[in-house]
Amino acid sequence: MKQAWQHFLQYKPLLKELVRRDLKVKYRRSFLGYIWSLLNPLLMMCVMTLVFSYMFRFDIPNYPLYLITGQTLWTFFNESTNMSMYSVLQNGALIKKVYIPKFIFPISRVLSSFVTMSFSLVAILVVMVFSKSPFYWTILLFPVPLFFLLLFAMGIGMVLSALSVYFRDITHLYGVLTLAWMYLTPIFYPVSALPEEVLPVILGNPMYAYITFFREIVLYGTVPEPILWLKCVLISLTTLALGLVVFRKMQRNFILYI
């Protein structure tokens, strides 16, 4: 364990460079550059607010904020896991050439998405100011759910990146899966809008736990109950551990399949 950690530290510069590269490539040749990370969630929120306030009419106070908090977290999860899924495949040329600890690829992708999301947090502030939402002190807890979500995304990302090397089908399947997952996560609708049979599924949905945590501290100004804390910690750590174990087991033969 200690050895693995030292090994990791040795490749910290590479991790930094990979994150830097992802960020650079993402907005290369666009005029607004990083501003898109801020603009994109705002524009998406505007569209969705229009659609859902006029067409479906959910009875949620401060709907724009409700929407953008859920949407920011979901977008991060979706983007980071999707990008890490391809990370090993896309870096095949490098893997064939030099020895590098391979978990660095999914991890770097998740981290670069995380940086992008940090920019998007400003969009939430903008919405709060414009909708004249109250600022509670609990908002200062915001790194907590984001950190848990980061670990969760890393775990899922590692599993996906390893599996996709052996079965490319995963890459096609995952798109559908995330679509279903998104609809099963109360991002743009309230939990109360669901039929009772679906409730257990929602409650077992890890994304729901993180989003609820985030909304409680930002939107409602309450400190989440201990049970929710426990749930978030447990899910994050188990997923991360699972990711590490699966990835470690599968990485040896990556090169034969890339």
């Binding site: 490749y11 510069p13 590479l14 930094k16 590269r21 490539v25 050439k97 030099v98 590098i100």
Partner: peptide, 21 residues
Amino acid sequence: AGFDPDLTARENIYLNGAVFG
């Protein structure tokens, strides 16, 4: 083989250097 085609030579030097630690 480890170069990123979208990055400039300058950026790739840093990236490739990091590959070697």
